[in-house]
Design a binder for these strands. Structure first.
Lengths: 334, 334
DNA sequence: GGCTCCCTTTAAAGCGCTTTAATAACGAGT
DNA sequence: ACTCGTTATTAAAGCGCTTTAAAGGGAGCC
């Protein structure tokens, strides 16, 4: 067996046309029960599997969603899993494309377009609104996780400002005033969170303090060092990985968390849930985001929706062990 | 623009045949410089992108490698990144398929076959040797990360027994005798490591002690609880995530690591490198594995290799902060 | 001017499947 | 017996691209 069996081979074996075989294998109405049985038997014997490239080409509809992700992000992994499940449920296939050091966002996206996905879901993309619009002209685009100022793309995102504000509110209610924010870098998601922090601080009449950082543990560690000995008694990190870096730096510097310093993360990744870490953080409900994202794509495709959709999900503050009352205002066990 | 431009549209615009356009766009020899320029210009103007399904179908070769992974595994993420880079370099595309709760390994693999990947790389698959052989009858299969008793599939794997033995050797040289192992569950990779542990312990004349567990932090935490108060003074975990769970359990139980208990992980994931965790662990050189795996696939395809290849890479023990001398044999600062 | 020869271009035949319009088969109805 | 309706089956036309054999067009040479 050097060649895989083709539709024609199955047809020949049963003694019917390829059309009949095609109909049977896709469960389309038409073929009689007898034909159906014989075709199925023959297909099984030959180990026949349809060539997806050929079916895609012949079919008008492709029922295929492209997902752009960063395979190294645990948060994306969570989203992908949920997207996959949801797509499965409604009969769509999912094509994954990840960015790597040799595969820029643009490149990975092109790869998805070459597959002629009917729609693409972009997880936390950094592309500009105009770049996204260009893509949206070809295929429905759903951006997950960040805001996009464009009428052309659908957006499903957590209300980052609300999430950050909730984190801040929690800290403020604990008596903290000097609350720093560790930045997540130049990315779109990071930018929104930083802005949310600035706004919420201003509203509370507090002075914002943004420390440079990024969305990795390393960034958190560097920021943590910068914070040691500062006036800040609490800090919000742009994401959980960064927060873990902070915890690390504080641990090494002998800064007691949450005794002397409260820390809040963002994402509620599995990391945060570890008892070891037990991080107070903000949960973004990945399953709900996945469902909405898939629904947005599919409603464009199957229901010919044309108006823009923006789903903003309320994040939920998850209070764990890294936050406590302000050291000055405490004296609890006097 | 309701339809994307086709080859024919570009051809019409330039006033040449589709054949010429195809040749130009793929950089094939033939077309004159002038034609080339005009075609490229027209293609750019129209924003033309080839339909991959159509090209794949028309082309004999597909230059496409399928990768089966678990998107939630950080170790797989690392491998995928390297595979992607390597494939890029030699002009292959990569199709990703992940297992999720709705997408079993079998299902994800089928998906890859439907894409008519020329070869598939399976990251730590749990399928039986016979199931793998069935797949290998259709397409070259490279299993990454575990042993497979079959002449039909290529294997690229770390010498897990050597890695576990190295971990054990390190602990033994530190004076430990009661060294437990936290199991990784029923998976193939976990099985190999468990066996490696048993063998190495026997060789050293020590009594093995295997604690139930799995490859998650939760599993580590449970195992850690079971170990508290036991005779063991050191423990090797089946992977890093599990080791992190152990650390967590010990921390909460007030067991000093590495003072009273040494811990060794497996994978050298980014997790382990965190200063916070600073886990002694075993590095498996993901880039090298990725390179070998891609090379194995490609040599079957491009060089018509037919004999089996098994690459066994020596893992490297990375000593960090979670291991120390046996508490009894210490008295260092007497 | 006629004839090679080489370089460029193209017509046309698929790749393996889907889909539609048409055909065949077969009773039922009158 | 003949028409009409149904239902089962298939021939054939693509889907958008690649590829090969053959055509076209000069340039160079005698």
């Amino acid at each position: 067996m050097d060649q895989r069996p083709r539709l024609e081979d199955v047809a020949a074996r049963v003694g019917v046309s390829t059309a009949s075989v095609s109909l049977v294998l896709r469960g389309a109405p038409g073929p009689s029960e007898q034909t159906r049985q014989r075709v199925l038997a023959a297909a099984a014997e030959l180990g026949y599997r349809a060539d997806r490239a050929a079916s895609l080409l012949a079919r008008r509809r492709r029922h295929q969603l492209g997902v752009l992700l960063d395979v190294r992000s645990p948060y994306h992994a969570e989203l992908v899993e949920e997207i996959q499940v949801e797509a499965d449920r409604i009969g769509y296939e999912v094509v994954l494309s990840t960015l790597t050091r040799s595969h820029s966002e643009e490149r990975a996206l092109e790869s998805l377009l070459d597959f002629r996905c009917e729609a693409v879901l972009l997880l936390g993309p950094d592309s500009s609104a105009s770049a996204l619009e260009k893509v949206a002209a070809q295929v429905p685009v759903v951006v997950v996780g960040r805001q996009v100022d464009s009428a052309a793309v659908d957006v499903v995102r957590p209300a980052d400002d609300v999430g950050v504000a909730a984190a801040l509110g929690h800290l403020i209610s604990l008596g903290h005033r000097d609350i720093a924010f560790v930045d997540g870098g130049k990315g779109a998601v990071a930018t929104t969170r930083r802005r949310g922090y600035r706004t919420a601080m201003r509203r509370a009449g507090l002075a914002p303090r943004v420390i440079a950082g990024d969305h990795t543990e390393e960034g958190g560690i560097r920021a943590g060092r910068a914070l040691v000995g500062s006036a800040s008694t609490a800090v919000v990190a742009s994401n959980d990985r960064c927060a873990v870096g902070l915890l690390d730096a504080f641990l090494r510097a002998g800064v007691d968390v949450p005794g002397a310093m409260s820390v809040v993360g963002y994402d509620d990744s599995t990391l945060a849930r570890l008892a070891h870490i037990d991080l107070t953080t903000v949960n973004q409900d990945a399953p709900a985001q996945a469902r909405h994202a898939v629904a947005a794509a599919v409603s464009r495709l199957d229901e010919r929706r044309t108006d823009r959709v923006e789903v903003v999900l309320e994040p939920r503050l998850v209070i764990r062990g890294t936050t406590a009352r302000h050291p000055g205002s405490t004296r609890v066990r006097a």
